[in-house]
């Protein structure tokens, strides 16, 4: 799981252009949205949906479904490991 979390952190930094951030800067349990987290927005949710489809073959229908999963890094990793198609 730690390995998957690290992989996801690297991918997220890349696709969301979180320049100047390293995987160590992202707390695996910290919220990704809203104040105190990474401050991601609605377009970032959609971009993460593309990421899950492209890398893991997971298709999410809409942003609301995405927002339930993209709460923190641990939750994303858990969801990916349970649902990945590749």
């Amino acid at each position: 799981m730690e390995e998957l979390i690290l992989e996801l952190k690297k991918e997220i930094i890349k696709v969301l252009n979180l320049e100047d951030m390293t995987p160590e800067d992202i707390d695996s349990q910290a919220p990704l949205f809203g104040a105190g987290g990474l401050g991601l927005d609605s377009i970032d949710v959609l971009e993460l949906i593309v990421l899950l489809e492209k890398h893991y073959g997971i298709r999410l229908a809409n942003a609301a479904e995405g927002k339930k999963i993209f709460t923190n890094m641990e939750n994303i990793a858990r969801y990916v490991s349970e649902n990945r198609k590749r």
Binding site: I43, D44, L46, E47, V50, E53, K54
Partner: peptide, 9 residues
């Protein structure tokens, strides 16, 4: 085919 929403905007 993975259209990027942020690139589209």
């Amino acid at each position: 085919f993975f259209p990027s929403p942020s690139a589209f905007v």
